[in-house]
């Protein structure tokens, strides 16, 4: 287990860095493509040069990012003992710093963005099955969060639901780059908390303001 964790810790930063420099993850729409001009003023310097042209200013751009991701965390799960949680999720963000358009190969890590996440804890395998043979793998909850993102850090607040019970409770999460902490409280089974790793594969769409 330790070796696996070390392997993940070694590989994920490299993957993250590779993704950050991958231009194909940014899709630039041609909508509203013209730039910003001030027609109230003539060109600053007019000498009748046929080739002269005042290039427009950057109007900035709108952006939306969709980040499918997966996470693996260890901590206290629904069964009461130590457990892991494997989850998949889909996060959307709407970055706010839009005054400058991105360069061709520039990947936008947002200074600040609101967003939302929906996710599913696929499974919570027990990590203490040697000591507690009765602990079995159980399914995790479905969750939804509102997120606030700053660069590579995100905090989220929302709710988790175990559809089979059904049992609903609040959930909070925090991520920084590939590191993740997620906690929730369910009225019947109590607190759950997991810390671990999360990897997201971002795709960003941009279009001119």
């Amino acid at each position: 287990m330790t070796r696996t964790i070390c392997a993940i810790r070694g590989a994920l930063p490299a993957v993250l860095l590779a993704l950050a420099g991958c231009p194909s993850l940014v899709q630039h729409s041609t909508r509203h493509a013209p730039g910003q001009v001030d027609l109230s003023q003539p060109p600053a310097r007019e000498v009748g040069d046929p080739a002269a042209y005042d290039p427009p200013d950057d109007p900035g751009e709108n952006r939306v990012a969709i980040l499918p991701g997966a996470s693996w965390g260890m901590g206290a799960g629904r069964t009461g003992g130590s457990a892991g949680e494997v989850a998949v999720q889909l996060r959307f963000t709407f970055p706010e710093s839009r005054d400058r358009s991105l360069g061709k190969d520039e990947f936008p890590a947002p200074w600040a963005a609101w967003g939302g996440t929906i996710g599913w804890g696929i499974a919570q395998p027990p990590l203490d099955s040697m000591q507690h043979p009765s602990h079995r793998t159980v399914g995790g909850p479905i969750y939804a969060e509102v997120n606030r993102t700053w660069l590579y850090a995100t905090v989220g607040v929302g709710a988790a639901i175990y559809p089979s019970s059904p049992e609903v409770g609040p959930q909070i999460s925090a991520t920084a780059a590939i590191y993740m902490v997620r906690a929730r409280y369910l009225p019947e089974s109590g607190f759950e908390i997991f810390g671990g790793f999360q990897l997201e594969l971002p795709t960003v769409w941009t279009w001119s303001r």
Partner: peptide, 27 residues
């Protein structure tokens, strides 16, 4: 782009082009 008639000689160049329209210099 060039125009000549009677006492006038003229040329036209698009100097600005953007979201809010275009600006033309008439020489």
């Amino acid at each position: 782009q060039s125009f000549a008639r009677d006492c006038l000689r003229a040329e036209a160049y698009v100097r600005k082009s953007g979201k809010t329209g275009i600006g033309v210099t008439l020489v």
